[in-house]
Design a protein around this nucleic acid. Structure first.
Lengths: 216, 216, 216, 216
DNA sequence: AATGAATGAGGCTTCATTCAT
DNA sequence: CATGAATGAAGCCTCATTCAT
């Protein structure tokens, strides 16, 4: 782990504050002043580290994505089989969002519909992250574990779409502890998807009667 | 069809203008002035029909939802079988969003993360709409067409999540005519979901060799 | 009594409505729309009878003042003596304000500090009304009932100032029925003023001992 | 005297400007822009010091009242006797209003009829100020200098009402230098009130003829 | 490196008033 | 006469951003 400079620490402190503030109100209704207050510094100081309010917003996911990507890759090395890996990915995403609700709120409720964000360097990082899913599906297709007439991009959309939908719903309710939490959807989602893409290549055990008619 | 009063026409004219404006910029960056200009009227006139900018925003989906709900119900009467109905619903939603891109943008990119909207009368209407999906899945479970260990709400989330994800992606690219359009995902989505929830109740035809080794 | 034309009736209806509205909110916070609603007519109709919102405001006291002036003059004819008349005036003003709280509110809380109103024809009428007080004081000075070193204008200011102060206080409290009402101040006020301006010309009854010392 | 911070100075500068502006036009017809221009700053700066236009209005009397209360109390210590003190109070109020015409205009023509102002902390301060009059009258009643059948609150109303009436009249004329100024009413007012409340406790010297008619 | 102080720019909203019908 | 409908004009207030210290 690299040692952080003083400047980097202050920068992260501001990002942390922004994360809290933006996730609670939403970007447009949050003010720089709110963030500064949360960070315990002055408005002006924020501009020493970020060129604009939007720059600050776009800087939030940076580390999170890098972080999530590394964790996920680490885990995937321990898993064998495309199906198992897919489940691992689903688990990782749902639990990461669940454990980082503020990051989730900003990613899914603010940045997801921000056209400018898509031109960002950070967004490219996110693309790479999502690419892991494609790769895994293709791996399964090649190995014969998955059908070979599926569209990996479409399957990924289904996975991401469902995950995001579930997490957003949870966030909109206030990310409650007592209600159904995102991770509880890991297996329902995996099973649903897996049933739809796995190759039916094994013999199924089924009832069978064989009648021998002698004398023929 | 009832005849629209002058007032109703003007109201709709403003909503139409707002739909165009809000879908292009986004709510916070659109001004009442923009909407007024688009409608060819003065700013003040808007306030004769809506109490606030937010009221105007929340009024946009009203007729669309009512409309979509009616069309969908009409079609469903012609369709037999929960699976077929589910496909009908998926088709309807994807094509409705595709044909009403501005409405889609406002619904999926603005209202979907607006907490206040969820307390609206219009939102209740939307809930009813989504209830149709639940009802259809339950119908399939009861008739034995679908497995009986699935969670209808979860399946609905998967359907809605995937649809919304696909439409949002398409909108973010500028709703292009030349690229993959939402309706093209109808069958991939239906097949994926259907494979995951249908009951495997028939014998599958499969290759089989029986070898008799005489004399043992 | 002259017969009112239809037009005059409508005019009065609007004035009555304005009186209610303006006295409750205050002029600047009342809208033409409020008045129209109160009168049960449309905004535009008000402009058929009054040239502007201010014109409407200035028209409110018109009849009231004429009315009050007549009533007062009627009564004064029955009263003999400047002191008694002064008491009559004080009684009349306090009770008129008390019985017409809305008119009072508009006169004392809105018009009293309106410079434009002072250039109005109606204001001249008010001046005449106040002139009655001056005349009465002068009458008392001439008849010897009052001191001759008092300034009638100052005495009038004291009377009007006290009356207005008392009525405004009462109005600010919401013109309550249960608390001290303006008319209860008639005698305290009259006595205070009268003691200060009456000529001490009669012999007062007082204890007296006369001692005759015989033999002188 | 404590040293004023930069912020306090700026605050006072704005209040001073508001005082000038509001007293000339009147509150509703004055704009924040007018005040800002008068103060030589920008509109937005005003909102760094006051939360709203109304907050600015209500902040005007603050220091004045504190100030006036102190001056008055200082002087009263030098004066013996309730009557003399009463005269001192009357003098002080009339001269303070006269010397601070803008403050007078705002107090007597704007705030006096503002219901919200009455719920202000500043208004409580004003109440204390007025309490001094009550105390003085009670002092005179206890010492036997004043009659004991008078109502101190009523007498105060008469004093305040007369003072305010006189000052408002003067202000409405444009606070002219050449005409009768408020302080000239000090003695007329004091004499009028004092005559009405002092106890007639000494024998008055008066002409007297005693005629002895012998032989009866 | 940090910030107190200031502001330009701009948006939402209100409302008196007009006018064609 | 009455009014439905429309709007020009204007004001309050917010806030991202700057800059001297």
């Amino acid at each position: 782990m690299k040692i952080k400079t003083k400047k980097e620490n202050r920068r992260e402190q501001i990002i942390k504050a922004a994360e809290e503030v933006f996730s609670k109100k939403d970007f447009q209704n949050s003010t720089i002043s709110d963030v500064a207050k949360q960070a315990g510094i002055s408005d002006a100081t924020i501009y020493e580290y970020f060129t604009s309010k939007e720059d600050l917003l776009f800087s939030i996911p940076g580390e999170n994505i890098e972080n999530a990507k590394n964790i996920l890759n680490d885990h995937l090395h321990y898993i064998k089989g495309a199906g198992n890996k897919l489940r691992g990915i689903i688990y990782h995403m749902l639990s990461y969002y669940q454990d980082n609700a503020e990051f989730a709120a900003i990613s899914l409720m603010i940045l997801r519909t921000n056209r400018k964000f898509m031109e960002t360097e950070v967004y490219n990082n996110l693309r790479e992250y999502y690419q892991i899913i494609i790769k895994t599906i293709e791996e399964g297709m090649e190995s014969g574990e998955f059908k070979n007439d599926i569209n990996p991009h479409f399957v990924r959309s289904a996975i991401l779409g469902t995950i995001e939908f579930i997490v957003v719903r949870w966030l909109m309710k206030g990310a409650p502890d007592d209600k159904t939490k995102p991770v509880e959807s890991v297996d329902p989602l995996f099973n649903l998807i897996f049933d739809g893409i796995k190759k039916e290549n094994g013999l199924k055990e089924m009832k069978c009667r064989i009648i021998f008619t002698p004398g023929e």
